[in-house]
Design a protein around this nucleic acid. Structure first.
Lengths: 182, 182
DNA sequence: AGGCGCATGTAAGCCGTTACATGATTCC
DNA sequence: GGAATCATGTAACGGCTTACATGCGCCT
């Protein structure tokens, strides 16, 4: 059974065959919004997936001292992905550094607390704008309405991202008022 | 400089001095909503914090073959916590297994997809109810209105949790409609 | 007598980050 | 000539999980 990173890579490769380098870049946007990985983690994982016959590669022309390898999922790889998607997900522990920080906000001076919250809020606004721009592109795309198309899944996860960010921005706006008012 | 776990422990101890065992239990609720740790991680971290003079312990009566230690933050520990809270938080990579799964939902049959989303939605509803119950308790507490009191920070983080869960539940409800309608 | 809760620790191993290492092609 | 981009790998280290290990006091 692949690791979570393995399923993330299978999800990427099922959308488009890629080199390891390309996968690393694609891990920024849009997958990077909820999953990230560095190339140093991706290359060994691709090797593991290949040894399990879930992906395969062909050598293509490219730069560099080594061969450039384009990976694709195998039929078994696509099956493994489809099986994993519907397995009952055990609730995994959440970790949120931002909230951990705000949970100790009572130790800070109100002025500094307000500055911190403003910074965090701006960061979420920027992320929200990025999500909205990507979602806008998909809205006109008919493939994003097809439940069996990757773009459908891209659209629904982006929709979730937009809603989550909006809720967070509203919360932080409320929080600024709580800090500011006596 | 302590690790993030170290700041989580300092945040707990600043609210109430505790044994390592007690800290492990408190890591379920309410800190556990955004940060978790097992006792096997907590005991070594307490030792590290103590060697940095950020916490100290007194031996108290208790069960077990070893001495029972009650830890408290030192003045330096409280200062370290207060300093950390307002340092500019670099945006750290997000990881969300649920969203990663839904991002590959296009590979699943609509019926199975709907079942999965229903399960996840129920889980968020349960969590939302727990947050709301805790928040309700704090609403009547005047200390939760005092910006310098730990309960203030507990209240604002719970408020964020409630808002985030509500947004997620609304999203998943929307998603069920998207999957269900032809 | 047995089970549960309190209480503290260590060890093995996985996952992930940062840093080290190499080298070709393309653009300025 | 130099910098950026493409491209693939390895090594060291820290964080976290799972499992191992021990044993007292209380309740049934």
């Amino acid at each position: 059974m692949p690791s979570l990173l393995g399923y993330a890579l299978l999800g990427l490769l099922a959308r488009r065959p890629s080199t390891g380098y390309d996968l690393a870049r694609r891990m920024d946007r849009p997958v990077g919004y909820f999953w990230t990985a560095r190339h140093s983690q991706i290359y060994p994982e691709l090797a593991r997936l290949e040894s399990s016959a879930l992906v395969e590669h062909v050598d293509i022309d490219g730069a560099g001292p080594r061969q450039t390898k384009r990976y694709s999922p195998t039929a078994a790889g696509l099956r493994a992905l489809a099986d994993w998607v519907i397995t009952d997900p055990e609730p995994q522990p959440e970790r949120d550094v931002e909230v951990l920080r705000l949970w100790s906000l009572w130790t800070a001076e109100p002025a500094q607390a307000a500055a911190l919250v403003t910074t965090i809020r701006q960061r979420h606004l920027n992320r929200l704008a990025a999500y909205e721009a990507e979602l806008a592109e998909l809205q006109d795309d008919p493939t994003a309405r097809d439940r069996g198309h990757p773009n459908f899944a891209s659209r629904i996860t982006l929709e979730g991202g937009v809603r989550a960010r909006r809720a967070t921005v509203e919360w932080l706006t409320w929080l600024l008022d709580e800090i500011g008012s006596p």
